[in-house]
Nucleic acid binder design. Sequence first.
DNA 1: CTTGACTGGTTCGATGTAGAACTATATGTC
DNA 2: GACATATAGTTCTACATCGAACCAGTCAAG
Lengths: 152, 152
Amino acid sequence: MDGDDPMRVFAAFNEIGIISQLATAMLAASLSDGLHPSHFMIVNHLARMGDGKTPVKIAGAMQVTKNTMTHSLRVLESRGLIEISANPEDGRGKLVFLTEAGRAFRDEAIVAVSARFDAVLTPEIEDLLARIRPDLVALRAHLDRSRTPQGI
Amino acid sequence: MDGDDPMRVFAAFNEIGIISQLATAMLAASLSDGLHPSHFMIVNHLARMGDGKTPVKIAGAMQVTKNTMTHSLRVLESRGLIEISANPEDGRGKLVFLTEAGRAFRDEAIVAVSARFDAVLTPEIEDLLARIRPDLVALRAHLDRSRTPQGI
DNA sequence: CTTGACTGGTTCGATGTAGAACTATATGTC
DNA sequence: GACATATAGTTCTACATCGAACCAGTCAAG
């Protein structure tokens, strides 16, 4: 049936969307002080990839727009988790650095979220995750590559 | 290494989150009139599963809260895509029905989004999706089951 | 050196979503 | 039947996110 085919593809992406939502909800429940998962993602990114990045770089990595990043960084700065300084090499730009509190927040969040995941993950599910990961990576890479292929 | 393990699990869910985001973006780009993917999901759900459902039922299926559903349904009603009537069997409740315009909107959206997906999907990717789907279903079912296990 | 195109960030307005408090109806227990 | 509890929807507030417009600084072309 022709009509069913788009629905099948759709269903797979729908499952992915629901899983993402459930995992995000678990992450959100592990964070304190009303911090949002996106805030943790930013701090985690800076800790893993190294800080001193520009807001635009971080926005690109997080796949959000510049204006969203401006907002998120303001929240993180007001909580003392990051520090923002002028970019000495570019008068327009800024650079984002983690504070000690930011690194501590990240470490604590990882402990909390790991505990929550551990309570849910069975050996079978861990096997499942390891099994599908290469396909997920390939799928993400393909979608990423196909995004806005020629812009205008 | 102990420290890497949570990050590995995390990475898999992160890939899933990014894929979900990219797929949602493709869906959003296929919708007209400023309609949001969530609006399409609601209409699509009613078309597939049958309309005449209560808002709470729909909210449960969409995994959003009641108040969010109140808002979304108001948008859909103002666009003439659904009609809301009182539930004759429950004085508190309401029932949501698709209009002809709602069904037409859904059909057109499916055509548009299918075209967009077709432009991206290769046979290899379709194989990949078919391959991982059982695991995705199992993973979603497991996470769903583990959610709020004992409430308090 | 000047001008035009581009880029980094911010601001504004709008929207989807969530949490909490509230009203109205239903249901179960005495 | 009366009351306690639960459920359906709404409202209010708050927040993350986006698109569009905007300013400031960079860079390339003349």
